[in-house]
Design a protein around this nucleic acid. Structure first.
Lengths: 154, 154
DNA sequence: ATAATTGCAAAGCGTTTGCACCCTG
DNA sequence: CAGGGTGCAAACGCTTTGCAATTAT
């Protein structure tokens, strides 16, 4: 039943195209595939891994194109980039608004935390150190329902 | 007057030694220098930069030693490692307890946010997504007092 | 003596870039 | 046939590792 929540998303072709255009990119065959594959992933993925999967699916696409597409989309805020692991970036298709992430340390599933009541508290706390807050990023680590169940029952 | 708050810290030799031992490292000449140089830095630094400075100070120390020392200390929680910039890690000597960071986007000054009232709220919010929280990391970006003043008066 | 630590240089790995080719309009 | 987009391979930059020399106990 939780699987429904975590189900891979399937984006309609129009949706993919509009997101690409939102990132200032023409919807080419390769870019569409990158975004679709990213949408199908409930966790976050590295560029290398994404490229490997696309190739495994029979797509003819270069690694450089995957990097170029991901970087362009991330810099336009169409997708989120993470730096959990030093040395490589992970990407994920996320909702547009301000949100934070819950990351399962066991299976890497990522859930979004959409309500964020941090601003007021942060502004106040930061002001004491003389800072004026412009942005913040919260990452929460833990175990998802499935991994917790597995741990208990297994 | 704010400079006092942000002043580079100077660690006593005993302090350096005890921190190294806390990280399971014998206080060798090189390790002491790495930790001292790190203490003298109010922002966070890369391993490369730290090595460059030590060399500039006349220290005979290899880059590999800097990396080994920083990694060992970071994995023991004696120093904090950051991954703001994809592709390289930054390090900083921090207080021991749970805390978060305020990073000035202009000058890279880092201040600590020691009070963190997030746990209860996080546990509750995450539970709704089926998660059990084990850890979290908050990074706050903004302008420090000095950079804000400079912006206004400059 | 024995074991740990260091420095150097080479290897490793994710990422970016130069450039020729290939599309699309 | 102009212009962006693509793939490949080479270059890149940070980091790690193998190994012989060095240092400490």
């Amino acid at each position: 039943m939780l699987d429904a929540m975590q189900a891979a998303r399937q984006l309609s072709e129009e949706d993919v195209n509009s997101r690409l255009r939102a990132g200032g990119l023409k919807p080419t065959r390769q870019r569409v595939r990158v975004l679709q594959e990213l949408a199908a992933e409930p966790s976050d993925v590295t560029a290398l891994e994404l490229h490997r999967r696309l190739r495994a699916d029979g797509d003819r696409i270069g690694l450089a194109t995957v990097y170029r597409t991901l970087n362009a989309l991330a810099s336009e805020g169409v997708i989120d980039a993470f730096a959990h692991h030093p040395g490589e970036s992970c990407f994920r298709l996320c909702s547009a608004g301000h949100h934070h992430h819950l990351v399962c340390t066991n299976c890497h599933l990522v859930a979004e935390l959409d309500e964020c009541g941090l601003e007021a508290w942060l502004d106040k706390a930061a002001a004491e150190a003389g800072f004026e807050v412009t942005d913040h990023r919260l990452e929460v680590f833990g175990l998802c329902a499935e991994c917790r169940t597995a741990r208990v029952s297994g």
